[in-house]
Design a binder for these strands. Structure first.
Lengths: 215, 215, 215, 215
DNA sequence: CATGAATGAGAATTCATTCAT
DNA sequence: AATGAATGAATTCTCATTCAT
């Protein structure tokens, strides 16, 4: 019936204020999403948490889902920034992988609400893949591909290693662990697993003496 | 969500018929859940798919969520049965792990609708952990723990290997891969990955010459 | 977000009951629409007037607009039936026109709520033209075309008379009068105007001695 | 609907500028109203069309409805001016009627957006009758009354002719035709109907030989 | 004068679930 | 055992309007 749907384009004269307010809303939303989950969260709850009126949210975001995706974009961008900065100082190929693993673990551990949203709500959302926010997530995980490729090229990792499969392993490993931690609090902390995980990942891709795996 | 929840205890004269109908409903539901996702699926859609009246569903299940969890239980039980049967014939420790990996991959590949439900909807559902269905899922994944412990005991795997961590790795790896496959159809098939995955997993836990990983 | 929109097809085993209930709702709705106008009427008000729950309305109609259009269809069908029945007994060409005029006036006068809805709400609704209900309205007004054509053919009306224009005149005349009556209660009753209107309409189309209208 | 309504009395230093801006807004609004209809039009759309900020509209008008009514007033005043000017040069009674008919047809045809607003939105609006704008509309239609009365007095029109009924006929005729044209584009143009309409109207009220209409 | 920003107040729908038959 | 019918309860999103700057 009613037509027109574009976000009443927040006619921002003041871009900085606008951005800050968006982030404030995102933070309020993260709290609620993280605690109750996306579907169980109401716009009302988000707005209460962000201390704004319900209608105000729609001045900054198109929909509840837009808020969700924007959270992903915002936090992943931060994580990405972290990784890039640190990565900058490391040239050792193996160290890069260790770094990535540690970085993910610490990021998830330090941002349990975001981890919850990302791993429990976002992952199952088919629309997320089509959102621009997803690209940022991909960019972040791309660092694993690069790190593996570099190792293969340098002859440190096995030639037959499939970087994409390794990414699946690393991310799957970490995410599965994080979900366990989030939902069952087991283990109590995940960041200490970084060494074990690193070793396992390394062994699985590094060249080593025992080569033959006959079926 | 809604309240009021007394189970109109289905006083089944004919237990078998009852079970069959439940399964029929589950199959109808799986189709819709798998295609649209849990939240986007309506009872009406499930019942249309199962060719029953909306009210009839409640003769067999307590709620929409009960249907979801029952799907998990039903299918996992099947998967579990598969695994046990095959496992029965293998005594080689390594082979057991290969089997588990292959079994999961094939099960997911052969039941994409269930995979979708399990990995995209169930995983993010906090209530699932409290459901009896979850126990069946745990039982299934328990085989990994056993297989690892056995290998450690036999001295095939490294002594410092944490079976629980390995389970996280294996399941995380496989599930992450499956999600990619489900949502992005990349890779086209996942069962062929079984060897690569097996090798990587093995290397990550087997004893091998290169032992030292200095930080 | 949510998809699917088709009216949860009222799975009517009992078609008669269904039809009766639809009509009951229509009557309740007419009351409110007629008094407050379409836009100012809420689903809640309709349902209160029809003594049903809000959700129940949607078992019978797709939307508020569907209710509006269904009112038009229902009442116009009645009117049409009236006209046809009476018309059946008249063979005199002029009488047919008199009948039509009288019929419209009486129908509007006897159903002021419907008149209000039809003339004040429906006429300005662009979607109405695309609705099946509109066809019924057209059918009703078609009788004017027929009556005029007949008169022209018989040589009673001027040859250059445009039946469509006459329809515009007759309907426009009656409707304008009815709107005045509805909104301003002036004149107090409209049915007595039937003779004056009839005469005016007749004179405007009948052959008569004074033929020349020089510009 | 909404409450709170104190007119922030625009203390206009520059009355002309003020009037010009009001008209500019009216023109912007007419465009949107005419295309989408009153209810479907948002203040945002009007202001976008008028190239002002939403809040600015309220410096010039009290409400959305005030804008609507002001459009009617503004355009009808123009139309009225036109009619008066031309009318001034005609002394022939019949010609006056021809003039009125032609004038309405041309005005509607030349201002389809306004016609749309006037005939599709304004006519069904009960509040309009209470607005000052309505008086201007009445004044315009008053010319028909005068023209008829004059004709009756001069003995050109039948003595029993009811000027108010004639007004209903003329306006109803023209408006019905215009609505058809607006919504169905049938006929393609309405101004050429002026002669046919004039003839029909004239015949319906002029004295002529055939006097008796026996029932 | 103009307006960016904020919001109160709805209002139409949707849907899981109940229950009389 | 099956279901047609009814509905309670909720929730997103819209939009006219206000007001401080």
């Amino acid at each position: 019936m009613k037509q027109g749907n574009q976000v009443r384009k927040t006619k921002t004269k003041n871009k900085t204020n606008n951005r800050l307010k968006k982030i404030a809303i995102l933070e309020g939303a993260l709290k609620v999403f993280g605690e109750k989950g996306f579907e169980a969260t109401t716009i009302a709850a988000i707005c209460k948490s962000a201390k704004i009126a319900d209608a105000t949210l729609y001045e900054y975001f198109e929909s509840k889902e837009d808020v969700l995706f924007s959270i992903a974009e915002h936090y992943t961008r931060q994580h990405l920034e972290n990784m890039k900065q640190v990565n900058h100082f490391f040239h050792n190929t193996r160290e890069k992988m260790r770094l990535i693993i540690q970085s993910y673990l610490e990021f998830y551990e330090d941002n349990p609400l975001y981890s919850s949203v990302a791993l429990l709500n976002l992952k199952g959302n088919r629309n997320f893949l089509k959102s621009p926010a997803y690209q940022v997530v991909r960019e972040a995980s791309g660092s694993i591909i690069e790190a593996v490729d570099e190792g293969v090229k340098k002859g440190i990792y096995r030639d037959d290693v499939d970087a994409y499969l390794v990414r699946n392993m690393v991310l799957g490993f970490i995410e599965h662990l994080t979900i366990q931690w989030l939902l069952l609090k087991r283990p109590e902390k995940i960041s200490p697993c970084r060494d074990s995980i690193f070793i396992m990942v390394m062994q699985s891709i590094e060249k080593n003496c025992k080569e033959a795996y006959d079926n």
